[in-house]
Design a protein around this nucleic acid. Structure first.
Length: 621
DNA sequence: GCCAACGTTGGC
DNA sequence: GCCAACGTTGGC
């Protein structure tokens, strides 16, 4: 973001406008116009602005690019922006729709600043029934001043302008900068280490820790995602202990009014997360049992501080690591970190499509996965901005997930952009399975009939057919089965016609059936494509998958942030609800791989369901 | 480690 | 102009 936000009085108080010039790529030099509402909503286009303000708002006179209102001057003299006005007036279709909107005079109405979408609507026009977010806020009266905020760390008073609405932490500018620096430094320590501590100086793996004992393939182990415990940088702050000196650590009692303290207690459950006012500013409180971290070795470890933190945060002597000024990361590269990883980001976007897998061949969004639900066209808020899970390339995901599956052929090498490997092959994010990687990779169920005779059958690169009488997915070629996916064998017979078409091998890539898929052209579905009999995962899904009902959607947590946080923090306190286990309506493979890493252990809770479903009464054909 | 959020860019 | 979605990063 090279250009700063500037006021846009044409839209009303609190509205900001920014022009961002593209710095690279084919469209380098081109600029994009963004607006930000008084409540922090990001607007990227006039359509979005119209959608945001509601249909009653007339934006005909508003020049989105210039950020000004075009006065309805006599036809002969478009004074404001002569050259551009022609284009604006050449859009009668949109104008017709908006003619019911108010005149300019209403644009400058005072804008309340509550965190809802009513406020911006009042900035341009009176609130109507179609205005979004019907939050019970008095929209007609002048907005009351927002409650004063204080930095969670230093406690100084903050203005609303200095706060990013979407951030969960309320920090002043300085504290946020320090925290960002701290996080960046920690990331660097995790990635390459400080290079100076005793752990970083160890050159060989211990061979006895839990990570070393995993005996992962070299190419996987070299990915840094699992590092010998004895070689982990000592300057990585542990999650389960705070710094002891910050405001949060020194606070002894719950505040009683933060969102955590005010959270409605759940019957029979003890609160497991910490009052916001008592959380360490630097370190991480222990809200997670994830990860095979070994803490015992680190008890004497001192949390590092951002380079400029010392001047503002008093800390014990032991916290000073002043003589260990972080050196450039390049000096501390592990042998397994490729040189390319240290090269600057090329700005070249990857082509994530192989163009041949079932996902790439799919042309329509499912409309039901979380990414689809996020899309504006499905009524979402456009925050995730990811491709439909069912359309995310299987090949791409496979390569990213299993780096050991190198391009086995030139074709594969072509399909997988080289910089994919360059940029991430050795990073800790390699197997992270972040959102874009959670593609519906492949769920292979045992096909009916004699196709099971060969035990495992190569079914395309990276896919191996399951053993007879099992419903497993072998995500590794050859004999390595890194992941096993349960599923009733008989279930794959739901759509036998598709399975037996053409030259399809005796395996099926399972995809969910959702209503929209019926609209897909038949040729979009390859012969190996069938619908997932997700009854394996979710009882009752089969009937839904059969088209009788639209599959339920795995939705985002209801709350804007609290529930999401709560889910994270509270994930061990309750038995997982169904959608957390299998994700009805969400690609099953997505959920499976969401279990990746430490969450794999939770697969046990997932697996037994297949047994249940294999009971006579549960099996559905 | 994971992922939500969002800046950014490609492409229609 | 607009949308899709890739890639980064801050927060937990």
């Amino acid at each position: 973001m090279a250009e700063a936000w500037q006021d846009c009085p044409a839209l009303g108080p609190g509205w900001k406008r920014r022009e961002a010039f593209r710095k690279s790529g084919a469209s380098c030099g081109r600029s994009d116009i963004y607006y930000r509402s008084p409540t922090g909503e990001k607007i990227r286009s006039k359509i979005e602005l119209t959608r945001y303000l509601g249909p009653a708002c007339d934006l005909t006179l508003f020049d989105f690019r210039q950020g000004i209102l075009c006065h309805p001057v006599p036809k002969t003299h478009p004074l404001a922006v002569p050259s551009k006005k022609k284009k604006k007036t050449s859009k009668p279709a949109k104008a017709k729709k908006q003619q019911v909107g108010p005149q300019r005079s209403e644009v400058r109405k005072e804008t309340p600043r509550e965190g809802n979408k009513v406020a911006p609507a009042t900035a341009l026009l009176p609130v109507t029934a179609s205005a979004p977010a019907p939050v019970p806020v008095p929209v007609s009266a002048p907005a009351p001043a927002p409650a004063p905020l204080c930095c969670e760390n230093c406690g100084i008073h903050l203005s609303w302008d200095g706060i990013k609405r979407e951030r969960r932490r309320t920090l002043c500018k300085d504290c946020r900068a320090q925290r960002i620096a701290f996080n960046r430094e920690q990331r660097m320590f995790k990635r390459v280490g400080c290079g100076e501590c005793t752990a970083c100086l160890v050159k060989e793996d211990c061979g006895v820790c839990s990570i070393c004992c995993l005996q992962l393939p070299n190419d996987v182990a070299s990915g840094l995602f699992c590092k010998c415990e004895q070689r982990r940088c000592l300057r990585i702050v542990e999650k389960n202990r705070g710094c002891g000196v910050c405001r949060g650590c020194q606070t002894q009692e719950d505040c009683g009014h933060c969102r955590i303290c005010l959270r409605f207690p759940r019957p029979g459950l003890k609160r497991q997360w910490r009052c916001l006012q008592r959380r360490c500013f630097w370190g991480k409180y222990d809200h997670s049992k994830r990860g095979p971290r070994v803490a015992s070795r680190r008890h004497s470890r001192a949390p590092p501080l951002p380079p400029h933190a010392a001047s503002q945060h008093p800390e014990p002597t032991e916290l000073h690591i002043s003589d260990q000024t972080p050196t450039a990361p390049a000096e501390f590269v592990y042998d397994c970190v490729e040189e390319d990883e240290l090269q600057p980001y090329t700005n070249q976007r990857q082509n994530r499509k192989c163009g041949a897998c079932a996902a790439c061949l799919r042309r329509m969004d499912c409309g039901h996965c979380d990414f689809c639900c996020d899309k504006p066209k499905f009524g979402g808020s456009n925050q995730k901005r990811q491709k439909c899970r069912w359309r995310q390339c299987l090949q791409f995901a496979m390569k990213r997930l299993l780096p050991s599956i190198g391009p086995g052929s030139e074709e594969e090498a072509r399909l997988l952009p080289h910089h994919t490997h360059q940029k991430r092959s050795a990073s800790t994010r390699q197997l992270q399975l972040s959102s874009p990687l959670k593609a519906p990779l492949a769920v292979v169920t045992t096909p009916p009939g004699p196709v099971q005779d060969s035990g495992k059958r190569q079914a395309g690169s990276g896919f191996v057919l399951p053993q007879p009488d099992t419903d497993l997915v072998y995500l590794q070629e050859g004999t390595s089965s890194l992941m096993q996916v349960p599923g009733p064998a008989a279930a794959s017979t739901e759509n036998p016609a598709q399975e037996t078409q053409g030259s399809a091998p005796g395996w099926v890539v399972a995809l969910p059936q959702v209503k929209q898929e019926k609209a897909d052209a038949p040729e979009e579905w390859t012969a190996v494509t069938t619908f997932l009999t997700s009854s394996t995962v979710q009882p009752g899904f089969l009937s839904k998958a059969s088209g009788l009902d639209p599959p339920p959607v795995k939705r985002e947590p209801p709350g804007p942030e609290e529930d999401g946080e709560e889910n994270k923090e509270d994930d061990v306190s309750e038995s997982a609800p169904a959608e957390e286990i299998g994700g009805i309506g969400t690609p099953v493979i997505t959920e499976i791989f969401s279990l990746g890493g430490t969450r794999l252990r939770d697969a046990e809770a997932w697996l037994p369901r297949s047994k249940d479903l294999k009971k006579p009464g549960a099996k559905m054909q």
